[in-house]
Amino acid sequence: MGMAETNLSPETPETNARRFEREVLPHVDVAYRMARSLTHDEDQAHDLVQDAALRALKAFPRLQHADNLRSWLARIVHTTFLDRVRYDNRRPTSSIDDEELDDSALGVTEFDPLVFEQALDDDYDACMQVLPPTWRATVQLVDVEGMSYEEAAEALEVPVGTIRSRLHRARQRLYVELCQRLQLGLCGKGRDGEGVDA
């Protein structure tokens, strides 16, 4: 079952903080990678993780089930990020969301393995920036962190079908971006004109 009931007795701030440090802080790497992927900026990622940790600490005593703290923390990082973007830009959620994005022109029916094999971390970083934040978060949770679709859906508070659709479109978009970088000679092992076959 794996559902551990927490909050069975009233906790003091000391025990809450101690339990938080023991149970949640081991997942700070996931929070950091998620924040890094969402912000693409080291300083902003640090601020985001700190804000999210504070929110998580305050929400921790109300947490009913502690069976998936990794996905719970990822959700708080994501929500904190979206709140920041909304606050900074004073714009509605839909513009930082993905469902309206026109990707009909992608039309990729088959991936060439060479494209993914040629790309380096820097290339993925550059191409990830093109994706809307919600797609980046989905790729981050499923493809990088190895979460199941169900865990990612819980973390991002969307249906499993949305995760599947975002992932599919995000991979297509990444593929197209990587192909373009390859053609421009910006990509991976062929960056300096060293034998790119694709």
Partner: peptide, 26 residues
């Protein structure tokens, strides 16, 4: 192709939170 993609993405999991960030959160 997808296996190559997922392998590349999974390798990013090596990136750990910097010690100064962990200390700051603590």
């Amino acid at each position: 192709a997808l296996q190559a993609f997922v392998d590349s993405m999974r390798s990013r999991r090596r990136q750990a939170a910097p010690p100064d960030l962990v200390a700051r959160v603590c």
